[in-house]
């Protein structure tokens, strides 16, 4: 009998519904208003997503103030890379004591973004930037090097759909 009465009074379900109702109320009265602290959904492609300062994005090579590549071909990054995505070819340049990377190939399609290469670099010649929109239509777009237009190791990648400014 007692059990039957409890079936008539669904207190447990009302308790659960009150939680849903509380959240519905919060969202319903503040819908489409930005800067509401408990809104966790962001309008991502329109509003760029924020990443933390330590975010591990695409590998990028750095140049010093004179515009010279900082890399001196010590091959530390090539050795430590767990997936062997970096290939460096040593070379000489006029007026430069240190070796110069003739080729610095980076196969992004196999990169696992672990940042071991940056950690191993003793010359601060490479960093991982904050770019995460790295999709591309062609396989060749994932092969990055020191030369080429746009798709090289120095500039942000242009292949991500939302990283291009709408024009």
């Amino acid at each position: 009998m007692n059990k039957f009465l409890r079936t008539l009074l669904p207190a447990d379900i009302a308790k659960g519904l009150s939680v849903t109702g509380k959240h519905f109320r919060q969202v319903f009265f503040t819908a489409n208003r930005r800067k509401v602290p408990f809104h966790i959904v962001s309008e991502y492609p329109e509003v760029p997503a924020k990443v933390q300062p330590r975010f591990r994005g695409r590998l990028t090579m750095l140049k010093d103030e004179q515009g010279v590549i900082k890399c001196v071909c010590c091959l530390a990054c090539e050795k430590i890379c767990p997936t062997q995505v970096i290939t460096i070819e040593k070379g000489k340049q006029e007026g430069r004591k240190m070796p110069y990377p003739v080729r610095y190939d980076f196969e992004m399609e196999r990169c696992i973004f672990c940042e071991f290469c940056v950690e191993s670099c003793g010359f601060d010649a490479i960093i991982l930037n904050h770019q995460f929109e790295l999709a591309a239509y062609n396989r060749e777009d994932f092969s990055l090097g020191t030369e080429g237009l746009g798709q090289n190791m120095f500039e942000p990648s242009h292949v991500g759909k939302f990283s291009v400014a709408d024009d």
Binding site: V51, Q52, P53, R54, F55, R56, F113, C114, E115, L128
Partner: peptide, 9 residues
């Protein structure tokens, strides 16, 4: 992400 730069791996 704040600590090590990656969310999942």
């Amino acid at each position: 992400e704040a600590f090590c730069g990656s969310r999942l791996t």
